[in-house]
Nucleic acid binder design. Structure first.
Length: 477
RNA sequence: GUGCCUAUAGCACAACGGCUAGUGCACCGGGUUGUGGUCCCGGCUAUGAGGGUUCGAUUCCCUCUAGGCACCCCA
């Protein structure tokens, strides 16, 4: 790399670092900042989140849509707003080899609206209900629960202006998280129509103007460019001023007010816990009326990055992108945020079902038969683990023990010749020799008879009914 | 983008500026033949990168890189 010397470090007759043979030569490539590998131990939670989303989508009739990660930059510019942080400093925007200015998507709602227009979804039976899941990109400074590539699952309903949709989406979001084991509260506010907002903003600006001197540089800029953002400032000076500041709810027109009231009524009806947050404004311009964020219950904004997700209504978005005026509403959850919250609650859903059976083999003949046995078990839908890389039986039993298998099947030279196989109960150490053709049904029976580990269970005579006679009974069946 | 803190093995941690950079877990192998859990023995792997101060740097200084936290903002 090019090193720039600043001080008089003199000519650094750098003795070229000749790689010493046998020593490691290259530093391994490093991950890009803010990007990361999601390793198997995290995948359990990630898939749990995705599965929960899919379940909700099925239950509420949302259709899946996959959108490109790369779009023309202007898909995002106007809808999100030129003066928003997301656009101003966080977008991965560049000119591609064909000269188009493109962006890695920082979120997906704008793309959904774009797709709605592109594919004439206006002509589909309305509403159009879509859900998606995938990576988003923002060049922000990484922090706990914040990455430059992160994942969202999102739900969008296009074509329904009714407040019940706002409420239903909120219910879907909070129920999904509840299903995952998380208690959440909804922070909610309404920012009305663009017209109401404009009126409110001039009021807000004129309220703050006399206090300009107290504002930080950033906040002065905001006052000019995006005054709404002053509302969620954490600057104590602003907080103080805000107490006396006009509130947006008071500036909503009748319709907006009614809309908002109805959303809240629906939430009351469904007993969804929410907090009115008059200072909640979202960072994107396309929002209208209802805006909300989903917080972990009990988290009162003490920690950063506490929002598990957010969303709101965007009645003008489709039109803004060049479509006909259509209402829309949606939300997205941050998969990393949700997974992190789950981890903190000690929730560790398994990545895949635990294999209760282990197959140990001795010699090539046994391996050959083993492959068939494996396939038989697979057809019977029984998960079997193995360690074909190990030869010693001892090592294989060790592996079986480590993965907490309930039974180990042992197949050696002798068994292959006899057409038998050994079933070893890993708990008791008891072994029985059985006909290799019956091993699947025998093991299946053992597994179904075995009490689930967690259940203390009624004193059923589970251990006594194992032996060889069972095998005979099984034959006809 | 700003500020503060941090960087030793796969992981968690040690090492007054000085001996061959230690320990635990994990991983691999062994404790005679085809039998796991405990135990014993052995092995592998590290000072993020580059420069400086010094007889000597894991230790002090600078730069870079990465991570954490806070701000900004958001998921």
């Amino acid at each position: 790399m090019m090193m720039k010397k600043k001080k008089e470090a003199a000519a650094p007759l750098s003795p070229t670092p000749t790689p010493i043979p046998g020593k490691k030569q290259k530093a391994p490539p490093e991950l890009l900042r803010g990007f990361r590998d999601i390793l198997p131990d995290e995948q359990g939670r990630f898939t749990a989140v995705r599965d929960a989303a899919r379940a909700m989508a099925d239950a509420y009739s949302f259709d899946r849509i996959d959108l490109p990660m790369l779009e023309r930059a202007d898909v995002f510019l106007r809808p999100l707003g030129k003066n928003t942080d997301v656009v101003e400093k966080e977008m991965y925007t560049f000119v591609d080899p064909s000269g188009d200015t493109v962006s890695l998507r920082p979120e997906a709602t704008a793309s959904v609206a774009r797709a709605y227009i592109n594919h004439g979804m206006l002509n589909l039976p309305q509403p159009v209900k879509l859900w998606y899941e995938g990576p988003m990109f923002r060049h922000d400074r990484p922090q706990a629960g914040r990455y430059r590539q992160f994942h969202q699952v999102g739900f969008e309903v296009i074509g329904v202006p009714e407040p019940i949709i706002d409420a239903q989406l909120i219910i879907i979001a909070s129920q999904m998280l509840k299903d995952l084991g998380l208690d959440v509260t909804i922070q909610i506010n309404s920012i009305g129509t663009p017209e109401a907002r404009t009126a409110y903003l001039t009021e807000l600006v004129s309220y703050f103007r006399p206090h300009r001197a107290k504002l930080s540089e950033d906040d002065k800029k905001r006052l000019q460019k995006n005054p709404l953002r002053l509302l969620d400032s954490k600057d104590p000076a602003i907080q103080e001023l805000l107490a006396g500041a006009p509130q947006i709810v008071d500036w909503l027109d009748e319709d907006s007010k009614n809309h908002f009231m109805k959303v809240l009524e629906f939430l009351d009806e469904m007993q969804v816990p929410y907090q009115l947050n008059p200072h909640l404004v979202r960072g994107l311009d396309y929002y209208t009326h209802t805006v909300f964020e989903i917080w972990l219950a009990g988290d009162q904004g003490e920690r950063a990055q506490n929002a598990l997700g957010g969303g709101g209504r965007y009645d003008g978005l489709v039109e803004l992108l060049g479509g006909r005026p259509v209402a829309g509403c949606g939300f997205a959850l941050g998969v990393e945020r949700v997974a992190k919250a789950m981890a903190e609650q000690g929730l560790t859903p398994p990545l895949r079902p635990h294999a209760k059976v282990f197959f140990a083999q001795l010699g090539d003949a046994a391996r050959r038969v083993g492959l068939k046995v494996f396939e038989e078990f697979r057809k019977a839908d029984i998960h079997v683990a193995e360690a074909f890389g190990k030869n010693a039986l001892k090592a294989q039993l060790e592996a079986a023990n480590k993965m907490a298998a309930a039974y180990t099947l042992i197949l050696g030279q002798k068994e292959v010749l006899d057409g038998t196989i050994i079933i070893r109960d890993m708990e008791s150490g008891a072994q029985e020799i059985v006909d290799v053709n019956k091993v699947v049904s025998l093991v299946k029976k053992k597994l179904t008879n075995a009490p689930e580990i967690a259940v203390p269970a009624t004193p059923v005579p589970v251990q006594t009914d194992i032996p060889v006679e069972v095998a005979d009974e099984e034959i006809p069946a």
